[in-house]
Design a binder for these strands. Structure first.
Length: 284
DNA sequence: CCGAAAACCTGAACGC
DNA sequence: TGCGTTCAGGTTTTCG
C-alpha cells in the first residue's frame, strides 16, 4: 500500500497487533523480499528471533518495528506490499513472501507482495531513524514538519512542482494519487516551475497535501482493488472522494469541466484544465 | 544539479 | 480462447 495514508493505516494495525510481542521464528519464502538485508536471509531471520517489538513507527512511506537496542525491522511496501495479521495455519496467500511467528503462539505477521518491489530488512537505528530512512524528509503528518522550510526548499529547485512534491528528500509520503489531489485542491498545475511559485501558493499546496492525507487516513486509505488493504485485509474507501486522480473524462467536482489525463514523468497526471491551467512557461 | 529512461516484478484489462 | 500491448498507489541507478 503505497502512499502515506495507506502506510499509516498499516502502522496503526501493527501497533495494535504486534507491539510487545516477541519474535519466535521467521520464514523467508522469497529471497528478493529481503534483498536489502545485505547479510542475507539467514542473517535476517537470526537477527529477529528472540527480539521483542517495542513500537511501530513510520516516516513518509517507510515503516519500521522498533526492536530496542538501536535496531529495527524496516519495511517498504513498494507498489504492492501488504502486511497481514493471520491465524497460524490459515492458508498461505499466493504472494506470501515473509512470515513472522511469535513466542505467544498467537497470530502471525505476514508480508505479502505481488510485484516484490517492496521488502524487509533489519537495520541499525541512528538518532531514531533506521539508516536507509535518514535521507527521507519529514512528512506532513510529522509534528515537527516545517512547511516554510519545505516551501523554501521547493522554491530553490529548478524543476516542476509535481516533481518536487514527489521528491521524498524534500517532503515525504506523497505519491502520484495525493500529488494530483493536492495540486487540484490548490488549483495549481504540476508543470508549474517551482522557482516561480509564490510562498502563498507553496503554502496552499502543502496545506492541501496535509488535508487530503488526513481525510484519506480517516477513510482508511485509498484502494481500487484487493492489492491495497489493511492488516485485516479490508480496503479503505477514499477512492470515492478522489476529485482528480483516475477521474479522466469525469466532471471536475468544482467546475464540471472534464478531468484530463496526461503523461508526465513517465506516469499519469490528472488535472482539471479549467481550474489548473497549464503554465505559460511550463517546460521544467 | 537536473531529467529521462531503464531497471526491478506480477497480473489485470483491453484490443484484435 | 489466446496472444500481444499497456498500465499500475515506488525507488534506484545510469547516462547525458
Amino acid at each position: 500500500m503505497p502512499e502515506l495514508p495507506e502506510v499509516e493505516v498499516v502502522r496503526l494495525g501493527l501497533a495494535e497487533h504486534v507491539t510487545g510481542r516477541t519474535v519466535a521464528a521467521v520464514e523467508v519464502r522469497h529471497p528478493r523480499s529481503v534483498r536489502r538485508h545485505l547479510a542475507g536471509e539467514l542473517d535476517f531471520a537470526a537477527r529477529l528471533a528472540g527480539r521483542q517489538i517495542r513500537a511501530a513507527r513510520r516516516r513518509g512511506k517507510y515503516l519500521w518495528l522498533d526492536l530496542g537496542g538501536e535496531q529495527a525491522l524496516l519495511a517498504h511496501l513498494g507498489m504492492s506490499g501488504q502486511m497481514r495479521i493471520q491465524e497460524p495455519g490459515s492458508i498461505d496467500e499466493t504472494h506470501l513472501r515473509v512470515r513472522l511467528q511469535f513466542t505467544d503462539g498467537g497470530t502471525e505477521l505476514r508480508f505479502i507482495d505481488q510485484r516484490t518491489f517492496g521488502g524487509l530488512s533489519v537495520e541499525d537505528v541512528v538518532d531514531g531513524l533506521p539508516i536507509p530512512v535518514t535521507h527521507i524528509a519529514r512528512d506532513p503528518l510529522d509534528p515537527c514538519f516545517d512547511p516554510d522550510a519545505v516551501i523554501a526548499g521547493i522554491r530553490q529547485r529548478r524543476t516542476a512542482l509535481k516533481r518536487a512534491l514527489l521528491d521524498q528528500t524534500l517532503v515525504s509520503g506523497i505519491g502520484n494519487i495525493y500529488a494530483d489531489e493536492a495540486l487540484w485542491r490548490a488549483r495549481l498545475h504540476g508543470a508549474r516551475l517551482t522557482a516561480t511559485l509564490t510562498r502563498a501558493q507553496g503554502r496552499a499546496v502543502l496545506t492541501a497535501v496535509t488535508e487530503v492525507m488526513t481525510e484519506a487516513l480517516a477513510a482508511g486509505g485509498t484502494s481500487f482493488d484487493a492489492l491495497y488493504v489493511n492488516i485485516n485485509g479490508a480496503s479503505g474507501y477514499f477512492d470515492r472522494s478522489l476529485a482528480a486522480y483516475g477521474q479522466d473524462g469525469r466532471p471536475c467536482p468544482r467546475c464540471g469541466t472534464a478531468i484530463r489525463r496526461d503523461a508526465f514523468m513517465n506516469r499519469s497526471s490528472h488535472t482539471c484544465p479549467r481550474c489548473q491551467p497549464r503554465p505559460r512557461h511550463p517546460h521544467p
